[in-house]
């Protein structure tokens, strides 16, 4: 296997939701064994991108190639095989609420391997140990804090030793401590297992601290891509606005609308009071 060849390539990706163009020609190259971050403001379709890579959504145009295979041309069987090689960490954790922590992590193992239960137990405890929650194995998901739930979900995502892991907003809504724990975990997994990681996030500082390569999306296009250092030096106004968190700039503060004054003068008789 050629280690320099990118693991995932997207070419000319276009995606529409309703009439809104979410992606308008997105080209990405995700290198093997590295941490790649995809950043962009809310609503720039980062989660949608992960779902397209995972084959859950179909792009309108363009293709996604994982290990030389076009994801959206695969047969159902092949797609399922591919998904066993990927782990995905959902924003909400997506733990199964009717299963305990242990059973949640054991779920993919029981589903896709024929290992004896005793071996599954060892593997699950190993994964839980890696995220530091071996002691919480008998808890139910409702008894976990948000940060713990995400760590359990991470243990589940790596249960089958995947080749790459997709992280959907791993840092959102976490307190500083669990944020630190997650950063450490993602880096550790990358270094020790050589796991290719794709992080979708809008937390600039945390993501920049661990990523080897960063893509910034805005308005359905890739604004820039490169190493974190290169990005900091870039003079692109969109990029600087995003990295520094300025409220107004090339990405407007206002959602597209008619001029305010014009709107105030019109439509007074048509205003509708929302009912709650």
């Amino acid at each position: 296997m050629d280690m320099t060849e990118p693991l995932i390539i997207t070419e000319g990706l276009q995606f529409k939701r309703g009439d809104r163009m979410i992606f308008d020609g997105v080209d990405l190259e995700i290198p093997r064994g590295k941490i790649t971050a995809i950043m962009g403001p809310s609503g720039s379709g980062k989660t949608t991108l992960l779902k397209i890579i995972g084959g859950e959504l179909k792009p309108w145009k363009g293709e996604v190639i994982v290990e030389g295979k076009n994801v959206h041309r695969l047969k159902r069987r092949e797609l399922l095989n591919l998904r066993q090689k990927m782990g995905i960490l959902f924003q909400s954790g997506a733990l199964f609420t009717d299963l305990s922590v242990f059973d949640n992590v054991a779920f993919p193992l029981r589903e896709h391997t024929r290992l004896p239960e005793i071996l599954i137990r060892d593997l699950v405890l190993m994964k839980l140990e890696a995220v530091g929650l071996r002691g919480a194995r008998d808890l139910m998901p409702r008894e976990l804090s948000g940060g713990m739930a995400r760590r359990v979900a991470l243990a589940r995502a790596i249960a089958l030793d995947p080749q790459f892991v997709l992280y959907d907003e791993p840092f959102t809504g976490q307190d500083p401590i669990s944020m630190g724990v997650l950063i450490k975990l993602i880096r550790l997994l990358n270094e020790t297992l050589g796991l290719t990681s794709i992080i979708v996030s809008h937390d600039v500082l945390e993501t920049a601290s661990i990523a080897h390569k960063i893509y910034v999306l805005a308005e359905g296009k890739v604004v820039s891509g490169g190493s974190p250092e290169a990005l900091q030096k870039s003079t692109s106004p969109e990029l600087q606005q995003f990295l520094k968190g300025m409220p107004d700039g090339p990405v407007p503060f206002h959602y597209p609308a008619r001029p305010f004054v014009e709107e105030l003068m019109l439509d007074t008789q048509r205003s509708v009071i929302p009912m709650f």
Partner: peptide, 17 residues
């Protein structure tokens, strides 16, 4: 519906189940 809302169904789908 709640399994759908909390992405449990998507999660299952992405775990090839």
């Amino acid at each position: 519906g709640l399994m759908r809302a909390t992405e449990q169904l998507s999660g299952m789908e992405m775990m090839a189940v």
